[in-house]
């Protein structure tokens, strides 16, 4: 999806104030980014791209049912999804993702979800990731980083915060030195994936990870997506408990 068209966004959050804030932030930082004035931006691309994607916020919702309706109707590229919203089966954001699993955008790509929450609790993160979210960022993220994350998710890549990366390292026993022998193994990380996760946990941007490991950004994105897939498909249903059990050496 490299055609320069606006990324269509739906905001789902039960706090009206927060929606207003994000809307203002995104529209202003998107126009600022259009002049290339911030550090992270979209310059992390290896191939030259239009410096900033235009953002278009096409809908807002504050509960599971209304969110499902809005998403089905507007078919956005990215949904910014709060983890804790009322309605549905009581599982908040995860319910929305499940309800909208089959919705496709105009160009045929699935609607992508980026979870946005104040909660750092592993249970919340894992619930939405396993439901199908492409990434997880906390609400304290700054506007430029949020923009980067949205762009990345719109392209079908995964977005990991340092804390999510740390959780992944715990859950897959990578901190204790467990490494998958074949890449396809779902319960462990490959050596390269582990390296990428460690650098993300250290606060590196994707381009910095690429530079550090002498690989392309595209490869970094591939590794991150592969980790996301493992996180979603791993047969460990109790990932959180599993991670906690492996935490203490």
């Amino acid at each position: 999806m490299t055609e320069p068209r606006a990324i269509r966004i739906v905001l789902v959050d039960d706090h009206h104030m927060f929606r207003t804030g994000v809307r203002a932030e995104l529209t202003s930082s998107a126009s600022a980014a259009a002049y290339g004035s911030h550090r992270d931006g979209t310059s992390t691309r290896s191939t030259p791209r239009p410096p900033a994607p235009a953002l278009e916020i096409v809908g807002e919702a504050g509960a599971v049912e209304s969110a499902t309706a809005v998403i089905t109707e507007t078919r956005p590229d990215v949904v910014l999804l709060d983890v804790h919203i009322p309605g549905g089966n009581g599982r908040g954001g995860a319910d929305v993702i499940r309800a909208c699993a089959t919705v496709k955008t105009g160009s045929g790509a699935p609607v992508r979800f980026l979870a946005l929450s104040v909660s750092d609790a592993a249970e919340d993160v894992i619930a939405v990731i396993r439901a199908g979210a492409r990434g997880y960022v906390t609400k304290t993220i700054n506007a430029a980083e949020l923009l980067t994350a949205i762009t990345r998710v719109a392209d079908g890549d995964a977005v990991f915060s340092p804390r999510l990366a740390g959780f992944v390292l715990d859950a897959f026993g990578a901190a204790a030195g467990e490494v998958a022998e074949i890449d396809e193994e779902l319960d462990r990380l490959s050596a390269r994936e582990r390296e990428v996760m460690r650098l993300i946990a250290r606060g590196y941007q994707y381009k910095e990870v690429a530079k550090e490991l002498f690989i392309s950004i595209k490869t970094v994105e591939t590794h991150v997506s592969s980790v996301l897939r493992k996180l979603q498909l791993s047969s460990r249903h109790e990932l959180t408990a599993w991670a906690m059990g492996r935490r203490l050496l």
């Binding site: 340092p162 804390r163 990366a165 740390g166 390292l169 715990d170 901190a175 606060g203 203490l248 050496l249």
Partner: peptide
């Protein structure tokens, strides 16, 4: 100034 802390494993 916020400091983000990520810890994997513990002892």
């Amino acid at each position: 100034v916020p400091v983000q802390l990520v810890v994997t494993g513990d002892r």
